[in-house]
């Protein structure tokens, strides 16, 4: 729970889709994020990069309040999505998660059938009246996640039988089935082989037409391939932000340069 409530700044609508202002985050007494100020634009892929332990995962989990249940975790500052303060009193964290979906580092399908995995979200939110509508949602979600052709004949099979890359695309389909606006991805390809990785990357670039994507990665080449804008975090602080090509070709901060050339070890 946030203690002081910062007055909401209406500002021009859609100025930036996600806006983070003076964010500090703590696990107990340990401060993991310091004075973060960031903007993420609609229908773009924004990548958060940095060495292990720099706070990337904490930052992305703040955006859909996944850390609410972590004991001792608290934040100061302001996070808004379309000018809505997501840590404000009127925001229900469960409803927020309907708007902000998440894909995790290692594929985590439920040990149910492929169909039931995608249907999980629509079922808990009662997003359909007839079974036919649910079938349509499942099909569309799988199509958007570029998995439909591979699984359409075996929807009743256990999701655990899929390969790692397929499982991860299933998790993306499962998140899309709730029809979110924002998709958070926490190193979605780091546990996958190169082939599956490039499929996921293609998919992410496609997804930005319909969704706003925020992705954590520590793969520099991957960020260069898919991101529109990049944030470089180091020891809980934003070192540099920039548009994708410039950031990689011409970083303004010497620290970023060191990181990009692989000379910056983890914290």
């Amino acid at each position: 729970m946030r203690e002081e409530s910062i007055p909401r700044n209406p500002g021009p609508v859609h100025e930036s889709y996600i806006k983070i202002q003076d964010l500090n985050a703590f696990y107990g007494n340990l401060q993991v994020l310091k004075n973060i100020r960031l903007d993420f634009q609609e229908h773009q892929v924004s990548a958060i990069m940095g060495p292990s332990g720099c706070g990337k995962t904490t930052l992305i989990r703040i955006l859909n309040r996944m850390n609410d249940d972590v004991p001792g975790f608290h934040i100061e500052g302001n996070v808004t999505i379309q000018s809505l303060d997501i840590y404000g009193r009127q925001v229900d964290p469960v409803l927020l998660k309907m708007r902000v979906g998440m894909v995790f580092q290692s594929p985590n399908p439920f040990p149910f059938s492929i169909y039931e995995n995608v249907a999980f979200g629509p079922k808990i939110h009662k997003l359909f009246k007839r079974k036919k509508e649910l079938n349509r949602i499942v099909k569309e979600s799988l199509q958007r996640a570029a998995l439909w052709d591979e699984v359409k004949d075996r929807l009743a099979e256990s999701a655990m039988k899929l390969s790692g890359g397929q499982q991860q695309r299933l998790c993306i389909a499962r998140a899309l089935a709730v029809q979110p606006e924002i998709l958070l991805m926490d190193e979605p390809a780091s546990a996958l082989d190169p082939g599956s990785t490039s499929k996921i990357e293609e998919l992410i670039v496609e997804l930005k037409q319909n969704y706003t994507v925020v992705i954590v990665t520590h793969n520099i080449q991957q960020a260069a391939r898919i991101a529109d804008s990049v944030v470089f975090l180091y020891k809980g602080e934003v070192v540099e932000t920039g548009r994708a090509p410039t950031f990689f070709e011409n970083p303004s901060n010497p620290m970023t340069e060191k990181y990009l050339s692989g000379q910056l070890s983890s914290v």
Partner: peptide, 23 residues
């Protein structure tokens, strides 16, 4: 039941009761 499955359900917007009932 592993934490990563619980997180998956939470991230889909499941309440605690829905998570218990359905998963």
């Amino acid at each position: 039941v592993p934490l990563k499955l619980r997180e998956a359900a939470t991230a889909l917007g499941a309440t605690k009761t829905q998570m218990v009932n359905r998963m």
